[in-house]
């Protein structure tokens, strides 16, 4: 975090407002949540597509970003999600239900056999991202303006999606 910002939140807010190309390091659950909220808000605000790769959609986390999901739904942005481990599916997850019911939303579940290695990431449009570099320690790198990185991550996302789609018996809940 830059020295002139006292809190993580003020640093993220600055980067978001200024569309800064600086990298934001985060290694805490609440930091991840704050970044998700901000990235989804920007997606709704600017009408940018959202692509997400997550281990599982745990309700503790994802039920806290329902407001931002609602904003995205209202803005009509595409939300494309890959869930790597369906066995951890949580019945209390409202996020998953709402996304499943959204006409421009899709959730692709992937078999455990190929799941663990795909990098967890959230991509918004062509320049905003959050990439987990160490899932166990919630370490991640994010930016609100880095086209080069998002371009590379988009390639990985598409490759991963194609790989999962090519496996028989995969379950894609709904595709816009």
């Amino acid at each position: 975090m830059s020295k002139k910002f006292e809190t993580f939140e003020s640093w993220v807010t600055y980067c978001r407002n200024e569309e800064s190309s600086s990298f934001i390091d985060n290694a805490a659950w609440d930091h991840a949540l704050f970044l998700f909220k901000n990235l989804l808000s920007v997606a709704a605000e600017k009408g940018e597509d959202v692509r997400l790769v997550s281990g599982h959609l745990n309700s503790d986390f994802f039920n806290q970003i329902l407001e931002e999901l609602e904003q995205c739904v209202k803005a009509g942005v595409l939300i494309d999600v890959i869930v790597l481990d369906r066995s951890l599916s949580d019945p209390a997850n409202i996020f998953e239900k709402k996304l499943g019911a959204y006409e421009k939303g899709s959730i692709l579940y992937c078999p455990k056999a190929i799941s663990s290695s795909l990098p967890h990431m959230l991509l918004v449009g062509d320049r905003r991202f959050r990439l987990e570099t160490d899932h166990e320690q919630t370490k991640a790198l994010a930016s609100f303006n880095n086209k080069e990185m998002v371009k590379t991550l988009s390639i990985l996302y598409v490759q991963g999606k194609n790989l999962i789609s090519g496996i028989p018996n995969n379950n894609q809940s709904q595709v816009a």
Binding site: I114, S115, S117, L118, P119, M121, L131, T133, L141, M149, T152, L153, L156, Q159, G160, L163
Partner: peptide, 13 residues
């Protein structure tokens, strides 16, 4: 970060 993400993806494939 990019290198680790790409290597993870390659492992999956």
């Amino acid at each position: 970060a990019t290198y680790e993400a790409v290597m993870s993806s390659i492992k999956s494939h």
